[in-house]
Nucleic acid binder design. Structure first.
Lengths: 121, 121
DNA sequence: GAGTATGAAAACGGGACCGTAACGATTGCG
DNA sequence: CGCAATCGTTACGGTCCCGTTTTCATACTC
């Protein structure tokens, strides 16, 4: 089955999950950085700076800086591509996987807490 | 029925919706500002600076600045409380309501696009 | 081997946000 | 009336992100 959300459910979930996530990760992770992180962990590798920039429609320095930030947090890891040493392959880390998993749990929890849609009573 | 999400569904939805939202609103709206906006439009009024700050666990200047930004965008409106002129009541606007509605549509659309969970497929 | 093309990072200037602290305006109390 | 408390805003110093441009290393082509 696909997921069928009512407007108040969708917005309520979004609000609750965003709020919970802010508490979890703090204000130090931009929406863009979050998207980049999720992309790395949800989409099949390999991931390169150029590829991510094109896929997410941002400039390359945005990716570079996001990798700096998240690399310092231990959420991702950079590895030189030995086939073509100009490329950088972005690798996942155990810490990052746990982090993403935590976000998933959080959304699931918020979804479960959702009240029925007000339209139906 | 409550909403029962599988991990890959939850993260996929989060990723897709965040990405779509970034394209919609641009990088000019912080996650905090978004939470504030949703709170104003989803929770029953009246909303004050102090109330929002306490409820969302941020400092008052964060609310003030968010109201500046979103006020310039026409998404919210400030009105002095005539009962107690120290207070500021945050009012909704037509433009803001449409904006929030758009976000809801976007999430619903992304939820509908979601594939079945990989565990069972 | 020289010259061009490509990938990522660094440099630069500008702008926004953050938390703390200080500031006016308003209220309530004695 | 004077004084403390409350509410929202502004000021300040710092940090981070952004897009553009430049730099550096590597790969490809002739």
């Amino acid at each position: 089955m696909s997921i069928d959300l009512k407007p108040s459910q969708a917005l309520g979930l979004w609000h609750a999950a965003t709020l919970a996530q802010l508490e979890l990760v703090g204000p130090d992770l931009t929406m863009r950085q979050l998207v980049i992180l999720l992309h790395i962990y949800l989409k099949p590798p390999p991931h390169t700076v150029r590829g991510l920039a094109a896929r997410l429609d941002v400039t390359k320095p945005v990716i570079t800086r996001a990798l700096d930030t998240m690399g310092n947090m231990g959420l991702v890891r950079r590895v030189r591509d030995e086939r073509d040493r100009r490329n950088v392959i972005i690798k996942r880390t155990v810490e990052g996987a746990l982090f993403v998993e935590k976000i998933g749990d959080l959304i699931i929890k918020e979804a479960a807490k959702l009240p029925r849609d007000g339209v139906t009573g």
